[in-house]
């Protein structure tokens, strides 16, 4: 507590992340074993959060850079529509056959197999809600997304 107070009063925060304990800090310690020393540390999950933040920001830059090119938006939306449809088809397949494709491919998530909720190609059933993006994209783009847009829309809605 005292060390945190010293850190906040004297420290220079180099990088703030999305968790209260997830920051990299450089400070002059007034208490504890590091008394009188300049400390550079990364408590908690700072490295993990920092890498996530950098990768998210870089991904946003990449997508923004690509979307400056004409027709790239349509290309991205098509990929999203087909991705959502693939997840929806896998979900419907599970309802019919009780065969979990996600578990077969990745070997993960056995704990959700026995609750009778389909999860498609996602790690958990809640992520099937992302199919709403597929519905949105198909309703906005319609024939420019795919000539089978009505079929894909029906699959995503059924899911």
């Amino acid at each position: 507590m005292a060390q945190d107070y010293a850190c906040k009063s004297l420290g220079l925060f180099l990088f703030l992340s999305d968790n209260s304990s997830g920051y990299i800090r450089l400070y002059y310690s007034l208490v504890g074993p590091n008394y009188g020393q300049t400390v550079f540390d990364a408590p908690g999950k700072s490295i993990v959060y920092s890498v996530r933040l950098i990768s998210d920001f870089s991904l946003a830059l990449f997508v923004a850079d690509q979307l400056r090119i004409p027709d790239s938006l349509k290309y991205l939306l098509r990929a999203m529509a087909w991705g959502a449809s693939a997840t929806a088809i896998a979900g419907i397949f599970y309802l019919v056959s009780k065969f979990d494709i996600y578990h077969f491919i990745t070997g993960l998530g056995e704990q959700v197999l026995n609750n009778d909720r389909t999860r498609g190609l996602s790690i958990e059933p809640r992520a099937m809600g992302l199919g709403a993006y597929g519905v949105m994209v198909l309703l906005l783009g319609r024939r420019s997304i795919s000539k089978y847009w009505i079929l894909l829309l029906f699959i995503n809605l059924f899911d």
Binding site: I69, A79, M80, A86, T87, Y133
Partner: peptide, 19 residues
């Protein structure tokens, strides 16, 4: 092949096998 990579981003946004 940035355009294909953009499609990869779009697909993996909704297909979580490669997470």
């Amino acid at each position: 092949q940035q355009r294909i990579l953009l499609a990869w981003v779009g697909v993996t946004l909704l297909v979580h096998i490669f997470d």
